[in-house]
Design a protein around this nucleic acid. Sequence first.
DNA 1: ATCCTTTCTTGAATCGATTCAATCTTGTAT
DNA 2: ATACAAGATTGAATCGATTCAAGAAAGGAT
Lengths: 353, 353
Amino acid sequence: MIKGHVKLADIAKAAGVSQGTASNVFSRPEVVREEVRERVLGIAKDLGYNGPDIKGRLLRAGRVNAIGVAAIEPLAYFFEDPWARALMTEVSAVCDATGTGIALVSAQNQQKLSWNINSALVDGFILLCVEGGEQLVALTRRRQLPFIALALGDGDAAIPAIGLDNIAGAAQAARHLADLGHQRFAILAIGLTGGEAGAMAPEQAVRSLKFTSRDRALGYWQALADFGIGRADVPIHATQNDRPTVDAALEALFETARPPTAILAMSDRIALFAMQWLAGRGYAVPDDVSVIGFDGVPEAATVVPGLTTMAQPLAEIARRAVAAILEDAAPAQQEALDVTLIVRGSTAPPPAV
Amino acid sequence: MIKGHVKLADIAKAAGVSQGTASNVFSRPEVVREEVRERVLGIAKDLGYNGPDIKGRLLRAGRVNAIGVAAIEPLAYFFEDPWARALMTEVSAVCDATGTGIALVSAQNQQKLSWNINSALVDGFILLCVEGGEQLVALTRRRQLPFIALALGDGDAAIPAIGLDNIAGAAQAARHLADLGHQRFAILAIGLTGGEAGAMAPEQAVRSLKFTSRDRALGYWQALADFGIGRADVPIHATQNDRPTVDAALEALFETARPPTAILAMSDRIALFAMQWLAGRGYAVPDDVSVIGFDGVPEAATVVPGLTTMAQPLAEIARRAVAAILEDAAPAQQEALDVTLIVRGSTAPPPAV
DNA sequence: ATCCTTTCTTGAATCGATTCAATCTTGTAT
DNA sequence: ATACAAGATTGAATCGATTCAAGAAAGGAT
């Protein structure tokens, strides 16, 4: 019988039992008399029926046992971006443990994303809000499913979100280097609200950086102030989190008369690009220049020398996020988690002058 | 977030139109008179109805517009393994273009995997068969959905699969190094059927390596034979595709009186581990030792020096695989695609003696 | 033989939409 | 005024299961 669509009703009819009983044979076998159960199962095997179709089941149940992870990025983002990957790894671990599926939801343009969010078969969403978080939240709202935003810069407390204490983390990073004796710092920033990259004045930074990066900048400044280093003494260059803009920033920084001995990078990605640029120019890390990153991506541990960084508690973030969706218990307000300093080989005292 | 109980039927009733018309308002608006359409949309907005629920729609349509990618690995595999990531990146690109969703399906133990495969809401599966491919295929068969196996070592032609011409690729790799003048080779293999790693004799390799690795070994040997280098002259060490076993193999190889000047690694992962080991021991790549990998993962391009490798046509693989699922047009038999040599900095003529 | 439990089984309702043949409206041409 | 095509709307069937109140059968006690 090539006709591929045997359904439960067919089995029931063929076995001479009601559809309800047939359903029980598969979903609650203990309630059906053994004799009947075996007969039904036999018929099912004969007809090539492999158990209830998941689509019918889920329509009835109303849940699909999967969570969606969404971002305003191409789908490949989940596999390419180091932070996204590290986070997904942890989310995967949690989902593995709870038997929950993962569906990737994304699109670059608003319209497609909207469609994808609306048609994703999931019980809720984890939103990766690195770019355009507000839009993502707005789009997801309409779906009327539980969701939780991650890395949402914006301070709107009404949005269920898990954030980081970026100010404290950045301060700790700067303090680490200052404690080592560094005096000449430079900041490599991300996340301009506008598009351009380049050097910027502190006031300008406060104005045009997005929340996450602004907080990190504030943290750096705050710690350095304790060491008598003013904002104006710390050049800050915005990048687009990619190699060309990082390279350009470094070119500019190391052309000056007093190049920095310590680089505060707002992401590990930037820090890693910076280390490669430095290696290419013959600057030794950490002997000539120290570099500290932010995020704690796995690559930071494997590169040589290891990258000192402020690690996000990704496992904790993932655990809370998945739990929030599964139990529909999103935090009433934003939670901010601590980042922790991980010292590796990329930071050391500055070279003796 | 409590889900509103408004459904299409409620809207229809409230607007005084039939359910069919209400459905058309959302799914085929052009067929409904403008006046009616606006009235219905108005009512919908008032009642807080956000368009057709996807579950009902899909039940009717019978397809969910998503494909599952499955592997017998923890879910994190998709984000951690370089080959899987590179492949997923390409699959993502294809899915992005066609508006198809991606669901990740995996589990380490058989039973859970079986459950996950059976309950995944997808239109078909792409199977990553690096480990335990046969089991994966067997499990997927039962679901009676289109599927296609990738990297399936086994030669069973009845399974729809996309493979590689490993023999030709490996031969090309070995020829590249032999053309450069190398004479002392060593092979770092993967994929033992048993568990142990270590040095092995050629006959043993043929016997105990899995299909993919065996073919690669055969390819290496075949090309080297043309240069008068016999199988017995090429030490072959099995690894488990991880750092410890690669390190152990290299320790053994470079302890000998005639260490190799050219390393044939069966995966980029192994090759990259090898390059790190060599760097740690003070061997210069490519001046002292040349290394060639296999797979063409992105890291091979970014490492310094770049890794020469045999690149898999991942984009092509992804394109075909997704098309096969979406059009239910899996190839009747296994297809084998060509790999291409990408020369980077890790290979050069051997050191002058 | 009667009554009461237990244990199975039934049948119909439900989940939330789409589809399509049939019917009803219009508008236009004759 | 009549006929007819084109366009809009209806209503019932369908997708594939689960659920649960109610009925039937079997077994035990009196």
